[in-house]
Simulated scan of single mutants.
Amino acid sequence: MSSETGHSGHSETTVTNRTVDVAVALVFMALAALVMADSVRVGMSWASDGPQAGYFPFYVGLIMFVASAVTVVQALVTRHPDLGNFVDRTQLKSVMQVLVPTTAYVGLIFLVGIYLASAVFIAFFMWWLGKYSIARILPVAVGVPLALFVMFEIWFLVPLPKGPLETALGY
């Protein structure tokens, strides 16, 4: 496998396109198998009054499974596999700078609720990647979750995940 060099002259190779194709196809096959298994559980045949609840999801899952299996086979048995670099290290670093904090944000929602987690998330990104001053960060980090709270909880009456702060305030 040839390695590509970046601007700094060091290897930028991470993972091949073929590896990513196979990995994504295997994930889709697993999801499709889950959909098909649950469709069998709820009933996937034709009843006297029409299709059961799992009828259409089963066949969508089956199509998804077969298409993913074809992708795996094509990627593994082709005479000319795509061994090009899927992403270079600079691009991967940019993705991880967003993915890791976003994953932490999702986990934080379960601990402290969506509004406090959103305030922390917004403040963190504005400080870390935006390099904004605290005078600009605080109004946005407090104002956006507050506006979302008013819009969803009060105007639309749609409850979002609460944490201890909202519970303590009686919401």
Rank of each mutant, 00 (worst) to 15 (best):
F86L: 12
S68R: 06
A67P: 02
L83Q: 14
V70F: 06
P81S: 09
L62W: 09
F65R: 01
V72F: 00
P81D: 05
F56Y: 14
V60C: 08
P51D: 01
N85A: 04
A69H: 02
S48L: 09
L76R: 05
V87M: 12
V60T: 06
V73Q: 01
G54N: 03
L83C: 02
N85F: 02
A53V: 09
D82R: 10
H80G: 03
H80P: 02
G50R: 08
G84K: 15
M64Y: 04
G84E: 15
I63Y: 05
A75Q: 00
P51R: 13
G61Q: 08
T71A: 11
T71I: 10
Y55H: 15
V60L: 08
G84M: 07
P51V: 12
Q74W: 05
G50T: 10
V73E: 00
R79C: 03
P81N: 06
F65C: 04
H80Y: 08
S68I: 14
G84Q: 12
L83E: 15
D88S: 03
D82C: 02
L76S: 10
G84H: 07
T78H: 02
V73H: 01
D49V: 08
M64E: 06
N85P: 13
L83A: 11
A47C: 01
A67S: 12
V66W: 01
Y59S: 04
V77L: 08
A47R: 03
F65M: 06
L83N: 15
N85E: 14
S48E: 12
F65I: 04
V60Q: 06
A67I: 12
G84P: 14
G61R: 11
G61C: 09
V87N: 01
Y59N: 09
S68F: 04
T78V: 15
R79T: 14
V77N: 00
V66Y: 02
F56S: 09
A53Y: 06
A69P: 03
Q52C: 05
S48G: 13
Q52T: 15
A69R: 03
T78G: 05
L76V: 15
G84I: 11
S48T: 10
F56L: 13
T78Y: 01
A47V: 02
F65D: 01
Q52N: 14
G61M: 10
G84D: 15
Q74H: 08
A67K: 05
P51I: 06
Y55C: 13
I63L: 12
V66G: 02
I63W: 07
T78D: 11
F86A: 14
D82M: 01
N85R: 11
I63N: 07
T71H: 02
H80E: 13
D88K: 00
A47G: 07
R79L: 07
